[in-house]
Design a protein around this nucleic acid. Structure first.
Length: 1030
RNA sequence: GUCGAAGUGGCGGAAUUGGCAGACGCGCUGGCCUAAGGAGCCAGUGUCCGAAAGGACGUGGGGGUUCGAGUCCCCCCUUCGACACCA
């Protein structure tokens, strides 16, 4: 009944560093000759209870006893033999794949096959590290959702796994691990709903995801799988926060430095104090304030969406257009609140400039550049009755055309500037702007609104008095919150001036082509212009030389760049302005009024000044709570401060400490960090997950992430994840990494050297007549007509997810096809960086491929090897070497879809020869097993083992090819007439141009198409093509 | 509106440098095997004309460069993604 394998063993492989399976485990496994349940309608599908699936004998302490292996008795297979006698017993199908896959997964785990050695520390194996290049490959780690995985999630994980496995075969020491981004709102919400601690739910979810991912056969170093909610992990998140807190940005040195050095610099006078007073003259309180104001983590009033009805602050997307909460429909108030801020703006230039050093998709770089939004221009001061109003402009050269000033409704000078007769109009407008949703204010299709303050300002370039207006399209959060309006040269100003009847004097002479484009006769009467003119053109009316010898005359100049430069110089000389740079990027609001996040390692003294919790008291652990709810208040109370959940931890709240001034009582910070915190540095912890002395050993960091040469940024060698993190995560983590770099904790100045965005898996979804989505798996396709429950439904297309009811889970794929088939399908669907539609119907193609490979190597009836000691034909050997060359290249460039095609072609070429020879030549079988193993690792190990190898295929060198076998004696010469293919000739590969031309002209097909006329011209591109121009 | 990516058979896709369009897979058609096939094997499968040989057309549309264009240039259309009054 049980078919035992007779394995033959080759001598142990010479390389002592290559792991070898314990012989007892490899030799003593057996295959269960299971029947194929899906062909027996009345038999339960195989769930592993039939017999012990291929686990190592005598290893009953295996750490991963899955349900599939817990009941070795009760062999159902016996009962089912008769009914399916005609079926091959060892057909490669889902049940057999399940046996093979779980067996190798157990062996990998038991042997720590994918444990990557460090150069130092507890995970060290210096001998294994010494002569090998390294590769740190990283996936964006997942949030452990309660819903588990669908087939869209593992796409990137499989891609990195294939790449990592390939690189191991190329001799690299590969570090690949996956952790969990496990703080966050869903777990907190679940805890609020159920009263169960979020840690419980989070750990359940992590366990489930680990199970789903383990079944995929990912070559991860499990020792490094950290979760951001582990106390051992967030102890170091808190430490990094304190490093940021205890630093300031030295703009001269252009790097962060410890705050202690700032105090020294103040004391010595090297760094001037903000108000110019000597450091020693400042009171202790004043000194503290000055120091705290320089920190990279600082407390500041920041505008937030406060919803007292819910007791929380909401993100913009949680606020409806009516200014109410998405959940509960409570009023939401925009108000200032004291929050932790991180000074990311100090790094704006470096975050921008260092993008050039990175190998990232250009589209992502563009998005980051736009997000940082560096604008160069000038600050110009306009005199008013309430003092100077500074405006920021990118076009100082157009100052002669500035005919009014516009302030943001929130501008601090609004009240003072408004004249009595305009008071009520202005107040009404300001109130209306405050009530207007940010998204509405940002809607450029909306008609311009505004109100005159009654005040005027002096244009410094010509002394003209121009009106001061207020408009909500000017934002307080950008630039200075005030603009100078140049209606002839800026479209928004043009629209505003047109609507309110303000002057639009021309200051540039537009070219004739511009008039033609807009269908108007050339004129300087701007009332006729349909739009503002923006661009290079000669300046007119742009001179003030009449009023002063030191005047500015731009008239006739055609270059905007030159105009800007000269205007800036003039402004600086007059003291009326200076060149300036403004960023769109703002400092990072880092406080959350939540429970399930990292507590801040901060305490406040009696004066309310924040202090760092001493390092030896880290981590500051989350206190246990019964109720994780924020404190809801009167929905209209926009005055009381929020009371975060941690305020309820009364025992924890106050703490007795000696921070150097003797024991005193301090009050803990009750906000927590945002979910981004852990993801800002997690990759560094993978390197050295158990280190209790440091967040990472510098030697270990340098080995895995250090720069490869002068000017190289260092960082992760390959980072793969979705494009949705293009800006926030990737900007925040770059910022943290740069702080750590400045302080000397890491040797790399960027965290992620190479970034790759994998595409999304999309899927068809179906809607009935009422517009409701219906369960996609229940829809029947009849020649393009889709029905659900007999009702015709419409097909659409979208991201796989619960809302579209079009989820397919990996577990379904494991059950129906096996992990290797699933992996191959995901990789074969298309290029890794392209989004692609999921189609379960297509998966079977990859299973058939594996079946055909299996059948060439293993007898389906007996389970015996079909690999024989025979020479392949020359043609097959050439095919093999061509495949090796192509697959190697495809793998190196992450083109896994075409690599798979080439392997299929090789197997298709192999099949007839195997049939003819009665078996597969060892040379082909061996190369096939190795090349297949990055993509279908379980199949790879199984075949490799059956070839008599007792070491894992993981570290087997990737096959090499003989270039001589890639060239053939003859080539197909394409013969074209007028660019159209008319004939194909087999010619010697080294044919001469003259011979090729003669052969082409002699072709009967060519004669027919040229009518025998002599060619006008003949183009020969050896060795492949001749084109005859008739 | 701006920026970015893309558009190739019934479907997913291939064509790395301007040189055989449609590799490979799904689906479909026919055959073999079979008591039976949701298995396997063999053959075919861009469209149109044709019994075939063969021919014409063909990579979103239009124009251009070239001996030769899916690929390069210009204009337009469509889809997807991101950003959006940024002074």
């Amino acid at each position: 009944m049980e078919a035992l394998y007779q394995l033959s063993y080759s001598p142990a492989i010479a390389d002592p560093t290559r792991p070898t399976w314990p012989v007892s485990e490899v030799r003593s496994y057996q295959l269960c000759p299971l029947q194929q349940p899906h062909r027996q309608p009345n038999v339960e599908p195989f769930r592993g209870t039939g017999c012990v699936p291929w686990r190592p004998m005598g290893s009953d302490t295996s750490p991963t006893s899955t349900p599939a292996s817990t009941s070795p008795a009760n062999n159902q297979a016996d009962e089912n033999v008769g009914s399916t006698a005609a079926l091959p017993t060892f057909r490669y199908d889902a049940a057999l794949a399940a046996q093979i896959e779980t067996r190798w997964q157990d062996l990998w785990e038991a042997n720590g096959t994918f444990n990557a050695p460090n150069p130092a520390g507890p995970l060290a194996d210096a001998s294994a590290v010494a002569d090998r290049p390294k590769l740190f490959v990283l996936d964006m780690f997942p949030y452990p959702s309660g819903k588990g995985l669908h087939v869209g999630h593992p796409l990137g994980y499989i891609g990195t796994d294939v790449f990592g496995r390939y690189k191991r075969m190329k001799g690299f020491n590969v570090l690949h691990a996956l952790g969990y981004d496990s703080f966050g709102l869903p777990a907190e919400q679940h805890a609020i709903n159920t009263g169960v601690h979020p840690r419980v739910n989070t750990e359940e979810n992590v366990t489930n995801m680990r199970r789903q991912l383990r079944r995929l056969g990912l070559a991860h170093d499990e020792r490094r799988s950290v979760a951001t909610t582990d106390e051992d992990f967030y102890r170091w998140t808190q430490w990094v926060f304190l490093e940021i807190f205890n630093s300031w940005y030295d703009t001269d040195a252009d790097r962060a430095r410890p705050i202690s050095e700032l105090i020294t610099a103040f004391e010595t006078g090297e760094q001037p104090t903000p108000h110019g007073r000597a450091w020693a003259e400042l009171s202790a309180a004043e000194q503290n304030t000055v120091v705290d104001d320089h920190r990279l983590a600082y407390l500041s009033e920041a505008p937030v969406n406060w919803c007292p009805g819910l007791g929380t602050i909401l993100a913009n997307e949680e606020v409806t257009a009516e200014g109410r909460s998405d959940i509960g429909n409570y009023p939401v108030f925009k108000r200032n609140m004291k929050q932790w801020m991180l000074r990311i703006t100090a790094y704006a230039d470096r975050l921008l400039d260092d993008l050039d050093a990175l190998e990232w998709p250009e589209a992502i770089k563009i998005m980051q550049r736009n997000w940082i939004g560096r604008s160069t221009g000038a600050t110009v001061r306009f005199g008013t009755s309430a003092g100077d109003v500074a405006v920021f402009t990118t076009r100082p050269d157009t100052l002669f055309g500035a005919t009014f000033v516009v302030l943001s409704p929130e501008h601090p000078l609004v009240a003072e500037l408004t004249t009595a007769d305009q008071r009520s109009a202005v107040d009404a407008y300001v109130a209306k702007a405050a009530a207007t949703d940010d998204q509405d204010r940002a809607d450029d299709t909306r008609e311009k609104t505004g109100v005159f303050t009654g005040a005027s300002a002096t244009n410094p370039i010509n002394g003209e008095q121009i009106p001061v207006w207020i408009a909500d399209y000017v934002l307080m959060g950008y630039g200075t919150g005030a603009i100078m309006a140049v209606p002839c040269g800026d479209q928004r100003d043009f629209e505003f001036a047109t609507k309110f009847g303000l002057a639009i004097p021309p200051i540039q002479q537009p070219p004739a082509s511009w008039y033609a484009e807009h269908g108007i006769e050339p004129t300087l009467d701007t009332a006729v212009w349909p739009v503002a003119y923006v661009g290079d053109a000669p300046y007119i009316n742009s001179s003030n030389t009449d009023s002063s010898d030191e005047g500015l005359d731009l008239d006739g100049i055609t270059s905007v760049a030159e105009g800007k430069e000269r205007t800036n110089a003039w402004l600086a000389a007059q003291g009326a302005g200076e060149s300036a740079i403004t960023y769109r990027l703002r400092d990072w609001l880092f406080s959350r009024q939540r429970y399930w996040g990292e507590p801040f390692p901060i305490v406040y003294d009696a004066d309310g000044r924040p202090h760092a919790v001493p390092d030896h008291l880290l981590p500051v652990t989350l206190p246990e709570l019964e109720d994780f709810r924020p404190t809801a208040m009167d929905p209209n109370d926009d005055v009381t401060d929020p009371i975060p959940p941690l305020a309820r931890a009364t025992e924890w709240l106050d703490v007795e400490l000696d921070l150097g001034n003797g024991p005193a009582t301090y009050r803990r910070e009750i906000n927590v960090m945002p979910q981004w915190a852990g993801s800002c540095w997690y990759e560094l912890r993978y390197l050295d997950p158990t280190n209790t002395e440091a967040f990472v050993d510098p030697e270990v960091e340098k080995y895995w992430m250090g720069p490869k040469h002068e000017g190289h940024s260092g960082g992760v060698d390959l980072y793969v994840g979705g494009v949705e993190h293009a800006v926030l995560h990737l900007l925040y983590s770059r910022f943290w990494h740069k702080v750590l770099f400045d302080l000397g904790h890491v040797s790399s100045f960027e965290p992620f050297y190479r970034l790759f965005n994998q595409g999304y898996i999309q899927a068809y979804a179906f809607r009935d007549e009422r517009g409701q989505t219906v369960e996609a798996s229940e829809v029947i396709d009849t020649d393009g007509v889709y029905t659900h429950d007999g009702e015709v439904v419409a097909r659409e297309y979208g991201k796989m997810g619960k809302s579209l009811k079009n989820i397919v889970t990996p577990d379904e794929m494991y059950d129906e096809y096996g992990a290797d088939t699933f992996r191959l399908y995901e990789m074969a669907m298309g290029p890794l960086d392209a989004s692609r539609p999921w189609n379960t119907r297509d998966v079977v193609g990859m299973q058939r491929f594996l079946q055909r490979v299996w059948r060439n190597m293993v007898d389906e009836d007996s389970g015996a090897s079909r690999v024989i000691d025979a020479e392949p034909s020359d043609a097959l050997r050439r095919e093999l070497h061509k495949t090796i060359s192509g697959v190697d290249d495809d793998m190196a460039n992450m083109r896994f879809n075409t690599a798979i095609s080439k392997l299929i072609e090789l197997n298709n070429a192999l099949t007839p020869e195997t049939q003819k020879l009665g078996g597969t030549p060892h040379e082909i079988a061996s190369a096939m097993a190795i090349m297949l193993s990055p993509l279908a690792p379980h199949m790879g190990e199984e075949l490799w083992s059956r070839l008599g190898n007792d070491a894992t295929v993981t570290f087997e060198p990737f096959p090499t090819f003989d270039p001589a076998l890639l060239v053939s004696d003859t080539v197909t010469l394409i013969v074209q007439v007028n660019g159209k293919v008319r004939d194909r000739l087999e010619v010697p590969a080294d044919i001469s141009e003259a011979d090729a031309e003669a052969a082409a002209l002699a072709s009967a097909a060519v004669q027919q198409h040229t009518g025998g006329n002599p060619p006008k011209k003949v183009i020969v591109r050896l060795p492949k093509l001749v084109n005859i121009v008739a």
